[in-house]
Design a protein around this nucleic acid. Structure first.
Lengths: 200, 200
DNA sequence: TTGCTAACCGGAACGGCGTTCCGTATCGTC
DNA sequence: GACGATACGGAACGCCGTTCCGGTTAGCAA
């Protein structure tokens, strides 16, 4: 049972320092290249930006899809981890609003990815559930705090809101003109609305 | 005004007979390869099946996307053109039902295409409107005939129904088990329902 | 500190792809 | 039947993802 090879993050043996450095450099470089040129960008462009050889990339990410999935996880983490500091320095409802905007920005850079997600490559299988596992609790905490402070209504399902913001953001093309931002603002106003027993 | 280079189907000069033969062979071969291996199948696979050289393909379809778009149009035409013969040999409501099943089959083979559609390639820009232009009138005629015969209700918008059947069909995976067929049958029963002023 | 070895590194090389090029063959016309 | 325009096939080109391997380095033990 514990020899299941699908166990993730098992520290089979310590990663050497130079290897860890390569991995970090590659993830950063890949993230930049993907946002600029999309996930179909040539691998050599990534290795060039990272200043490593192709062999190094493939040592750590045996398939191209492994790299894409790793970058995705990395960015999901960064977005989810941005919440606590917002909570620390804002009113609950403002922390919620700012995080949703941050989240929308995250989704907006994922246009090319949705095609990859449906490509059937098993490297992507765990991504949707990872997305949920990280974001639902974060948004749930933000919603709870704002609701407890009486700043928004309390009948919102984090999963629903996550999906709504995601859907709002995805169809937007590059000629956005702030449309997404306006829609999210509207959504947040909608949340505020129910905070009082009777609307103002 | 009439020298707009976007005019489609302008007979700049007669197509030579051998050229037309090549085009037809290529469209047929490409359609087969696409349904078996998806739209990302290697070009050489198509030229091999068609028994032509790569040069011939690129003479008639300068970009890969041009071939995909042409196959799509070709299949849209085939599906739309199937309606009249159904009308000729069936009760109106049966013609409608059979054509919707035909249409569902058409959509079912277009899974890989939806990604291509959103790739931003200008060759695909006219495809959605072509889809509408061909299918809405066909379905509209079928609905009218069945409604006039008192076999279905008369308040159905062809565009809505087209979209509904499309949505019903697209999410289905390969482990379909007749689900799509059952859903379409249900939809047609729904159409029948309103045919009488009061339901049976 | 030194020496050893497993792990890691860079980049040339490989096979496959989409696309182009051009000498040859074919069509339609005079 | 001959001629010019057009189309044909397939070798060739450049790019890509991926693999391979000789040289390098980190981490540990003595």
């Amino acid at each position: 049972m514990n020899d299941d090879p699908t166990d993730r993050e098992r520290p089979r043996q310590r990663v050497r320092a130079d290897a860890q450095r390569s991995i970090d450099t590659l993830l950063t470089a890949a993230a930049e290249v993907f946002t600029v040129s999309g996930v179909d960008a040539p691998v050599r462009q990534i290795t060039a930006k990272a200043g490593v050889g192709a062999g190094t990339l493939y040592r750590h990410f045996p398939q191209r899809s492994d790299l894409i999935a790793a970058v995705f996880r990395h960015e999901v983490d960064a977005c989810a981890d941005a919440a606590p500091s917002l909570v620390a320095q804002c009113e609950p409802v403002d922390a919620l609003a700012q995080w949703l905007r941050r989240f929308a920005g995250f989704i907006a850079t994922k246009r090319g990815l949705s095609a990859a997600l449906h490509s059937g490559d098993p490297a992507y299988d765990s991504l949707p559930s990872y997305f949920q596992q990280r974001f639902v609790p974060v948004l749930g905490t933000l919603l709870d705090a704002a609701a407890k402070a009486g700043q928004i209504r309390s009948d919102i399902d984090p999963q629903d809101l996550l999906r709504a913001v995601g859907n709002l953001t995805l169809p937007a093309q590059e000629d956005d003109d702030g449309h997404t931002q306006r829609m999210i603002a509207l959504l947040i106003d909608g949340l505020r609305y129910g905070a009082h027993a009777g609307p103002a």
